[in-house]
Write a protein that binds this DNA or RNA. Structure first.
Lengths: 128, 128
DNA sequence: ACTATGCATTGACGAACATCGATATAAAGC
DNA sequence: GCTTTATATCGATGTTCGTCAATGCATAGT
């Protein structure tokens, strides 16, 4: 980091009176909470791969397509997450508004809500 | 959902032989894991607000600036997270490569690693 | 009616996380 | 030296999360 060299023009900060001018994030508490919840829904390998497949397919995908295909393989058994786990991840994505689904007979067909993905990108664009 | 109406061109899926053609996510396991770890580092209101302030300031910000300013207020006490918690969040952001810092005397000045934020946006762009 | 299938939900478990108070470290000023 | 200040780290606690086996619930096929 070349810390011996860096010169910050930072003049006169008296210890004990607070070193900096007060500041508030532009991101208000509620907006930060909402954004964090969206990001939390995304922050899982299995869920990212589910979304990837949904986008790749560009349409409706039934749940059985995800089984044995997404999620990190168990280091011991080499097995990927099973059906109840997939269903759980899909529920998380649903509740975050990132995907929707239709029931057709025995199958459930999922699709992406692209607007919601755009919301995430909008938040990240704020930090650029 | 209009589920009575939706017509999917659904040709002949025999129950029991798997309903769909096999598919793999373009997002490989390791890439998915890395992306998820980055998103996990972002998926916290306090950390989003920290990054927001860092970007807003456009330069070096010392830790004390974040105290009492970022993070969700405790519903009971109305208090925001205290110094050890802020320090913890900064460590998480550091380890994710999202921020860096320089030590100047008593103070630690943090700054954003914009390239890393770009990495996150690149992953999300894949899903669009 | 009976069986098999696709999917959701429940309950349990361990791992990971956010937060805190207390303590440690390290530099500045006396 | 000692004290104060800014930050990091440690240990404990309560909560959230990912995963599974078991179960429930429709629907399809016989």
């Amino acid at each position: 980091m070349v810390s011996g060299e860096t010169v910050i023009m930072e003049p006169k900060r008296q210890v004990g009176q607070g070193c900096c001018t007060p500041i508030r994030p532009r991101l208000e508490d509620e907006a930060a909470r909402d954004a964090a919840n969206l990001l939390k829904a995304l922050a899982e390998p299995a869920r990212l791969q589910i979304l990837d497949i949904l986008v790749q397919r560009g349409g409706l995908v039934c749940v059985c397509d995800f089984e044995g295909v997404v999620g990190t393989p168990d280091p011991k058994t080499g097995q990927r997450p099973k059906q109840p786990t997939i269903s759980h991840h899909l529920k998380v994505l649903r509740e975050a508004g990132l995907v929707g689904y239709e029931k057709q007979g025995l199958w459930a067909y999922y699709f992406v809500h692209r607007e919601r993905l755009a919301d995430v990108q909008a938040v990240l664009a704020l930090l650029t």
